[in-house]
Design a binder for these strands. Structure first.
Lengths: 211, 211
DNA sequence: ACCTGAACACCGTTCAAGT
DNA sequence: ACCTGAACACCGTTCAAGT
């Protein structure tokens, strides 16, 4: 049996100052994570950096992990929102355009603040953490499903598997870029490779529709 | 400044019983990780499960993290070894064969003990952890580079980027399978998708060589 | 040469007391 | 309604003492 980590805030802030406190604590958490690393990220240090007492941290977050989950959720939300937007914008466009737009947008958001993206990768996994990532992945796959379904000139057998494969094929290489397995200077070339990979894959699994 | 984690064994076992002790400790670590989870993985619990004292753990591993790194290294070594073997076996074969063999082999090892693979994903990242993963990734990319270079009928502009993209495009979707974002029952279908994705990508970036 | 386990420092978390 | 910080339990790590 694994220890359970309640992640919902202990209480919702009701006054302006406490809303600020929550934001301050979340920002402090990222700062400590970035400057000190996970090993030195203690609730005491976060509190000190935020300029509040440990007790205040525990007033809004039931435990340390909830703090990390909150930071992760915030970051992941921004990424998925961007992906969903492009997917909406590209509805009905040709497959080539869809592929390129998706790749560009995803690399764009992920690499916008590389250090924060990297810090998120370094968070220790646990059931709640996995749930957040899984939920975001599911939303991404769904958005891509809708996008592909909107293609006027093609249909896809096993749409959701194609969408999932596409998402995975994007996430994997971009993670390599993030972690340095592909040098960051080569971001532009990787973008080109991924655009090609996505477009050729989509064209290969697309079943032409003639009306 | 992030805390440093020396990861080399405190001492090399010189007698038979101590070699056994090290193995026992590593196995116990995996067992605790699998049955109790990372949150309950304490050096005391590992020692108890291994049937030794805490002191013995620290005789061979400078700290808790080194223990996790050792377990990770062992697992990752098995995976990369398999990949390198297929890459060697497929030298000179047609691109279609290469792509299929690589996909099958990678999915095969990764999904051989899914729970252990999952547990490895859940380890907290730190510089040494990242270094192990980066080193394994680099070996994978290199093996694929060599494989692609051996193709008699095609050359690749920017070989290493193509190899890295290919590896990433494999790792991403298989991670989804591992984490449940793609249902495990669909492993066979995903394999087919990835074979197609890899082969079409390779064919699209290959520059035919006629002699 | 290897093992033991009490001892110490530090971290997560709580809660009685304050404003 | 929110904040403080001393207090407590637990974990990582050490090291003097054993075999």
């Amino acid at each position: 049996m694994s220890k359970t980590h309640p992640i919902s805030p202990r209480k919702s802030p009701r006054q302006a100052r406490s809303i600020v406190t929550v934001e301050v604590i979340l920002d402090a958490t990222i700062q400590v994570l970035l400057t000190q690393g996970l090993a030195l990220l203690t609730t005491a240090r976060v509190a000190a950096r935020a300029g509040v007492s440990v007790g205040s941290v525990y007033q809004y977050f039931p435990n340390k992990h909830a703090l990390l989950i909150a930071v992760l959720t915030r970051h992941v939300e921004a990424i998925i929102a961007r992906v969903e937007t492009v997917c909406r914008e590209q509805r009905g466009e040709p497959l080539e355009s869809m592929g390129r737009a998706l790749v560009d947008a995803y690399i764009g958001v992920k690499m916008a603040q590389p250090d924060i993206s990297r810090a998120m990768c370094a968070l220790p996994a646990n059931p709640e953490h996995d749930a957040v990532v899984a939920a975001m992945t599911a939303r991404g796959i769904l958005a891509v499903c809708d996008l592909l379904a909107s293609c006027p000139s093609a249909r896809f057998h096993d749409l959701s598997l194609v969408a999932a494969t596409l998402c995975g094929a994007l996430i994997g290489p971009v993670d390599m870029l993030l972690k340095g397995s592909i040098p960051i200077e080569r971001a532009a070339e990787l973008t080109a490779q991924l655009e090609g990979l996505c477009v050729y894959y989509l064209l290969s699994v697309a079943q032409p529709v003639t009306r």
